[in-house]
Design a protein around this nucleic acid. Sequence first.
DNA 1: TCAAAAGTGTTTGTACTACACCCATGC
DNA 2: GCATGGGTGTAGTACAAACACTTTTGA
Lengths: 225, 225
Amino acid sequence: MKPFSDYQNPAVAVDLVVFGYSRGQLSVLMLNRKEEPFQDRWTLPGAFVAINETFQDACTRILSTKLGAAGLYLEQLFTFDDPQRDPRGRVISVAYYALVNPARFATTAGNMANDVKWFPITEMPEPGFDHRSILNIALRRLQGKIMYYPVGFELLDEEFTMSELHQLYECILSMPIDRRNFSRKILEANFIEPTGHKREGLKNRHPELFRFIKSLKEHHFHLKL
Amino acid sequence: MKPFSDYQNPAVAVDLVVFGYSRGQLSVLMLNRKEEPFQDRWTLPGAFVAINETFQDACTRILSTKLGAAGLYLEQLFTFDDPQRDPRGRVISVAYYALVNPARFATTAGNMANDVKWFPITEMPEPGFDHRSILNIALRRLQGKIMYYPVGFELLDEEFTMSELHQLYECILSMPIDRRNFSRKILEANFIEPTGHKREGLKNRHPELFRFIKSLKEHHFHLKL
DNA sequence: TCAAAAGTGTTTGTACTACACCCATGC
DNA sequence: GCATGGGTGTAGTACAAACACTTTTGA
């Protein structure tokens, strides 16, 4: 049965907001376009969805091509439908966001594709297409998500200190949070546990290291900060 | 420029969860299918998205055809991408939900299309396609939305009593809420105002009537119940 | 005058805020 | 021993939960 051959269907693409966190900054992976439209402008990485491909498949394709990364946290954001959003024709874009610890992949080394670059969200160039809207929605979604899902799981190293987690929350929410109240509430939420180790080699007191309790990865809590 | 003609594009449809509230019950508008697949089964109303049509346009088309309603509150829910979700071929479905006061439209009268029916969410037949998932997501979204957006605006009459609003919240959240605390918190949230009238003709004390403050329609608050 | 729903307060406890102090480490 | 960040505790307060009484109406 091929009942749709009579109709002209829109193209469907996925666009990815890949969030990375390193050195206290939240960054997004951007792509330098080589063709028109928006040649030489920075845009979100994206790909057309093949006829028998899921969105997740398409996202995975992008992530492995551009970042060499697999198995990242992925979440659908919103689907953009403005008929004029792509000057080449009708393209519906399904936006996703991904979370990645850039340290785990070949970002600082030279083997990341050279048309790809991390931009801290505070130093973002004006992107092509409607990707500014996608970025804004992604950031708001991340800010909401962090209150009831252990986002740091995906963004930090396996073991991390309380103040690293604290900085991550301050950075994503872009607001100051009292260090001591934060620590208490996070521990009460019961999704991290001490590893027993301490981070060595600092000039100050060696802080305790924590890890996320993986069995609770899908367990929702509620943080009020 | 027609760069997409080489590719086989998936069909794109919108599916609508139309919520209605009347006589203390939350209902959803369902459609009885006349063709295969899922002939004679109940499904959500839906339509294919034309090549130059926005999702909103497609939703409006459905709503005016099936319900004779226009200008309803619409919000995008999620986009479903399972390649097998429609046995006819690849159909990507963008789900929306709408809020409507059924009393304002021709629902009880006979001029509603006879393949269309309101089902209370507690007495829903098992729908065709993946529409059960869509319904579940819609309901959860509505439950979240009601905490920071005046949902009753769209579901209740122009003027309503505090206990009507109270019942609506209890119904949507499906949990008991203390009447007195509810009243206080709603009034403090400052998005409704007394009209000065009272509802007459009841056998008990005549309750005050309220209205939503329309200028605050887009203003988000936060209710904690 | 009775039943049923509407309107108005009060008490109680919890949990968030805003602090201050001590501890460990490298220099 | 001093500077710097890490760890722990506590008092004040605001707000939400639980609950009781009075008022208005029709029958």
